[in-house]
Design a protein around this nucleic acid. Sequence first.
DNA 1: ACGATCGGATAAACCGCTTTACTAAAGCGG
DNA 2: CCGCTTTAGTAAAGCGGTTTATCCGATCGT
Lengths: 343, 343
Amino acid sequence: MSRVTIADVASAAGVSKTAVSFAFNSPGRLGHATLERVLGVAHDLGYAPHPAARALSMRRSGTIGVLIPQRLSAVFANPFMSELIQGLGELCEEHDLTLLLVPPLDGSLESAIRHASVDGFISLGLSPDDRALEVLDGIGIPTVLIDSDESSTHPVVNVDDRGGAHAAASHLLGLGHRQLAIVVLPPARAQMSYTPTATRRLAGYNAAIEAAGMPPPRPVTAGISVAAGIRAFESLPVGKRRPTGVLVMSDMAAIGVMNAARTAGMRVPDDLSVVGFDDLPFSAWTNPPLTTVRQPIVEKGRMAARMLIDRMKGKGIDSPAPLGTTLVVRASTSESGKLGFAN
Amino acid sequence: MSRVTIADVASAAGVSKTAVSFAFNSPGRLGHATLERVLGVAHDLGYAPHPAARALSMRRSGTIGVLIPQRLSAVFANPFMSELIQGLGELCEEHDLTLLLVPPLDGSLESAIRHASVDGFISLGLSPDDRALEVLDGIGIPTVLIDSDESSTHPVVNVDDRGGAHAAASHLLGLGHRQLAIVVLPPARAQMSYTPTATRRLAGYNAAIEAAGMPPPRPVTAGISVAAGIRAFESLPVGKRRPTGVLVMSDMAAIGVMNAARTAGMRVPDDLSVVGFDDLPFSAWTNPPLTTVRQPIVEKGRMAARMLIDRMKGKGIDSPAPLGTTLVVRASTSESGKLGFAN
DNA sequence: ACGATCGGATAAACCGCTTTACTAAAGCGG
DNA sequence: CCGCTTTAGTAAAGCGGTTTATCCGATCGT
């Protein structure tokens, strides 16, 4: 009934446990005949080395963990996560690693970290001075940060959020928009300030707006979902201060904004221009197709995995330069309407 | 430098390893004073039990594996996967479990299974007689099948694929379409036949078509991506046999079909009606909004996780009834055009 | 005052595998 | 035919926890 162990194979084949282990891990150290026999017996018995035992004695589990700051159901509602995993996945498959998703356990990310049997961690959106990272360092697990701030203790993989946001705002300003709104990402965990990513994007938006001689608007916060975008639209200023253009920090929310606007009787882009951030795969297929800032998410995942794997091999901690972002102009933005509030 | 172990804590606190272990796992068995002291020392030293060691001796890892038949990058390109993980995630968080993604290792799913340290598996789209499942049973890991065929050895979670497909086809037929095309899902792994899911959906389409007194069309195969949908459109019959309606087994491919059609100068739905399958979250926001068969993917994940957790607790293997599917009519389908190719 | 009971703590076995010596036999040059 | 290196295989010591069985001294009932 119980699982077949290395000892079972050993005695069935009339050899020592060592021989069986060698048969799998260093076949060269066994005579041809014995090798065949051991392998045969092992196969017949359906033997598979116990992964935990293996991990314990080899001090490596063949798994890397993805540290997820929120609930799985929230994070995977955002296609961003899918893209990222595609990137991580490529490298994992290349190096025969599996991917463990580690959300807060029982509310605590720290405790989740402690329970995870992994060779390294990829952390998403955590500030470099987050408590969770201290725990990680305490245990001594190599870690790479994605969407964080510069750190001297961990490699960080980022994109040029600020530049992208700046381009987005400049785009709207160039189209003559003077009344802008900003929809900002919520803090990753309750009672925290903006995520590093949100902070940088906000800075980019504001820099462009101020350079155009206008006061930066007070941002509205919205989660990363269509529904959140709808709510965000509803809390936008109305009347005199109604914006003609909205800068949204995620494509998901941008779709919500577009939809809510239409429901409210506005046309996109004629009455309201919307620009998102991410360029998710389906943003090209929305109605209208979304103007947005493209960030190379898959590449971000690849890069982070590559850095982590290097780090697990003992390499240093030099962060790569931020990956480029580019504005993708589609059909959700147009010149500020002459009929708009402006006149 | 090296990780701090239970022995370190024990000697630092002047107690036995047993006491330290008890402090964490059965606090009641320790005197109040010692408990406090041990916990204090453990915290100061930054001690965390080694997960692999723990898994080995407790015979449980606190992880469930998701068996992924293809490459991660391929599977996560489909939002279906995100939805499913949301469902699985809910239950995992409820039970303090983490989720391990297990794609084929080095090309072999079997070998990936052997290396994964998990308490149970959720298998996606694998036929009940797949070799991989034999390995699983050999090792004796509880497993739940999603999108498979009825099995007497494993619980299976399915939706009413056939019914949904039937409804989709009936919808088009009811709109007067007489020239239909079918875009079918590719086999999960090379050199295999259709997945159980594809087979059932095909049966549903065909049943409706035959009931209407028409010969079932020869299906075109397309992967689950917009690009694949575009290719599928291009291999549709032209001229006299050009379809006025297309039944697509995935929303992703359906979007590709719609787009390719428009590129080819056809209007959707006026010249071509398209109905998808899945009702992914963004299918409501495409241009035009997609008519599709809704399947409760998140619920599917929840259900599967629930069954697996039950099974890990030793419960039986009764599969639940297939979850319901419903046709969601949006704007990608309309009456068969009088102006279409037909005349 | 004495055996029974009990709370508090521990020694040692065990989980299943890897790996480092170490040994016995076989091959080899001289 | 003898010492010396290979070759083939093994015993045993980890890896870092959990858990069972046991021990010891203090309290309790009578």
